[in-house]
Nucleic acid binder design. Structure first.
Lengths: 194, 194, 194, 194
DNA sequence: CATGAATGAGTGTTCATTCAT
DNA sequence: GATGAATGAACACTCATTCAT
């Protein structure tokens, strides 16, 4: 039902804010639902556990990021341009939705145990985004605009550099506005993988 | 007293292993001390709290990393070479002491709340390492081997790319041995900031 | 209204099954109504509380048992024969309606607190059955077929022995079919009170 | 350690009182420990769960009952006398330790789910007592003082009749003191199985 | 009558920290 | 210093009951 989906999104929104700000383990279910005038008991009508909320949240973020990247990937432009547009888009997204990006970097990457089933802790939950990134890299390599190297190196360059600036931003040490960095960042990223 | 320092190091070693593997919040003091045949009560003779153990641990790691970097910085070689040596040294360190690096990336960066006093969550605890990184970057810029850009961009490039590969390594998705990546990684890093 | 009574019986049937199988405290209202395609909210149109459902259920069982016993009591036969017929009838009932008997022994006798009002926890709820049992005993004593002893002793002999075999049956330790025990059981019961 | 065993017994004693009086599910760990000036947290230094406390409690009771019965079984007397001594001993025990017997009948027999592992809900936990009962019955049969019938019938006669009087006693419907019933009860039991 | 979302008090369990020995 | 029993606040999750629709 639509109504149910709406409520789920509302909960996820609150969770992203709280988890990204205070961390998963320092946020109680009560904290999550207080923001949206929901009772603790009712939360469990929408998610079976706090853990599953964390998982649903990362899927939510991954889908959003994947969409942005897909839109860029689908364009018939140079890889250089794609990198630029992606960085631009990413920085804007980070500015407007810091909780999503911070959730991705802080909770998803920092608390891996939450996202594992048994011993299996892959990236399934973020695969929408990762697959799109993979596509961008492979397209660039095919068109000889990127060097043909191990995927994981290129992945580290793109995600790592963006992760770095994201972290510095969340630490509030950046002196300028985020978008001021888009030129330098996209140039750095492009140089690193071409 | 020397004896006291020895015990502290022992505790930190155990903490780094446990925290990096299971996460700070999933590791109890009892877990930390069980490894080293110490009682829970006695732990508190060495550290006033679990939190302070986390802080001491990151200082310990930061110092170790800073030393490696300082040794390289002190040499009279090109920045290109420095980057290479640093990457090489870093990968070796990661291979031999994964718990330290993983602690840095997972716990220190992923659970910032642990390392804040009041609202102040700077990098004081890792400043030994960060200062040395700053020195390498500034030296390179001065010698015109790196482009003269915002420090934080260059920082993101170096730390971000290494962070990326570190994460992939801890996720066990890398197909080759870590040191196989040193050439490509140092090249990517160098290109990104020059 | 008849319709209302039908629904109540339906609920009680489901409750007897669930309560006897999983216990009162391990069965939720949701469990009870799921079986019969009824909503949780609607349940409260028929019973004011979970507790009252437990009470109504035992009354239901007691009436059923009382009817069987009354039919036997009303016959003009020896007490020896009555005991036999009762045991036979009881074992058949147990075989066909284990949930009723198990509810009686497990929930009604094992969770007395549910059936008390204030401090008053009598047998009112099972009085239909108990009165009929009392009648059988007193008739037997009058006819000098049973020894004239404290009612509670005779009661313990009849109900206790049947309770014993019921328990063993529900634990699935009996090697033979229930009705195979009717001869021995009725003999034992008869001997014990005559 | 002895100290530890002492505390465990203390907890079990309190649990037997509370569980037998209010039922397992209506007694909180807090209730159990309040009686003995222990904190909730400390309880978990002695038992891993509330459930395991229930199991340990029944083992405790079973051992106590088995001892009494063993003492009687070991004597070189007639089965008739054994039955009498056992009933006498049982009634005395019930009078002095009603919480133990009531726990056995109310919680152990009434809440079987607590004592099961997986699908396996045998009598292991009470086997000390049951084995001794089995011995008494078999000895009697061997000496031709009891009829040679299915063990479960004889078991139901002994345990059932005692269970009946126990139940009536805990319901406070008996008009006389417990020991007044020993003659009639032991006679009834003896007659039922001989 | 019927639905099922919403409520919120309640419980088992954990764990950082303390303290008597 | 060393021990580990003791403390108690905190939290995820449950579920009987209510109520808007």
């Amino acid at each position: 039902m639509l109504r149910k989906k709406k409520k789920e999104s509302l909960i996820i929104s609150s969770a992203l804010k709280m988890f990204s700000k205070y961390g998963f383990y320092n946020t109680t279910i009560s904290d999550v639902v207080k923001n949206i005038n929901m009772s603790v008991g009712n939360f469990y009508n929408y998610f079976p556990s706090k853990n599953s909320l964390a998982k649903s949240s990362i899927i939510f973020v991954s889908k959003r990021l994947a969409n942005k990247l897909k839109y860029i990937n689908d364009q018939n432009i140079s890889s250089r341009k794609k990198i630029f547009l992606f960085v631009e888009s990413y920085l804007l997204f980070l500015k407007n939705n810091p909780e999503m990006i911070n959730y991705f970097f802080k909770v998803y990457l920092g608390n891996r145990e939450l996202f594992c089933d048994n011993e299996n802790c892959g990236f399934e939950l973020a695969e929408d985004f990762i697959n799109e990134l993979k596509r961008m890299i492979n397209d660039g390599i095919e068109k000889k605009e990127f060097i043909n190297q191990d995927f994981f190196i290129s992945f580290s360059c793109i995600a790592g550099i963006l992760g770095g600036i994201t972290f510095l931003n969340s630490e509030k040490v950046l002196s300028q506005d985020l978008e001021q960095y888009k030129q330098a960042l996209s140039t750095s990223i492009f140089k690193s993988i071409s």
